[in-house]
């Protein structure tokens, strides 16, 4: 079946089998391998993308249901060579070790930070309940999200 949706700001028209997952469509057919599949059982959060501005698990989303939707993957965050403030914060605060969970961590955190300009570490940890880091590097991830949230809102004020 044919679906049309916005992907990282560009219109996409693609034929999908009804059982195809969004994670499979992005990675295997559209070449966007920044979205990672960790557990494939809806638990680890490495595959998180945004659908209509909200973070969702792409490994548990049927591509067929995306007709008319707006999808943003990790590849859609940066503005050309300029990293998104949340990406920049993860870079500066060393919010990653092996990096496998990072795309999902960042996509989840961007939704959180939109509504939380100055989050406490507890609030960040609570929000990231659905994102696992198997390097257990949570300390720097929490610092990164706090810094990224502040940077996102500073940028908004300056704009």
């Amino acid at each position: 079946m044919q679906i049309r949706f916005q992907l990282n700001g560009k219109p996409v028209t693609v034929d999908v089998p009804p059982h195809e997952l969004l994670s499979e469509l992005l990675r295997d057919r559209l070449g966007l391998t920044g979205t990672h599949v960790g557990c494939d059982t809806s638990q680890c959060g490495a595959c998180v993308v945004h659908v209509d501005g909200r973070s969702v698990k792409s490994c548990t989303t049927l591509a067929a249901a995306l007709e008319g939707a707006t999808v943003t993957s990790i590849e859609g965050l940066a503005d050309g060579a300029a990293l998104h403030p949340m990406q920049q914060a993860f870079h500066e605060k060393h919010g990653l070790q092996c990096g496998f969970c990072t795309p999902g961590m960042i996509m989840s955190s961007v939704e959180f930070a939109k509504n939380n300009p100055d989050p406490t570490p507890e609030a960040v940890r609570h929000w990231l309940e659905g994102n696992f880091c198997r390097c257990t590097g949570y300390q720097n991830i929490v610092s990164s999200v706090q810094a990224g949230a502040a940077a996102m809102h500073a940028q908004r004020k300056g704009a």
Binding site: G45, V48, V56, K57, S108, G130
Partner: peptide, 9 residues
């Protein structure tokens, strides 16, 4: 319920 991504869907 679940986590934020589960609650969004």
């Amino acid at each position: 319920i679940g986590d934020p991504q589960v609650r969004n869907c």
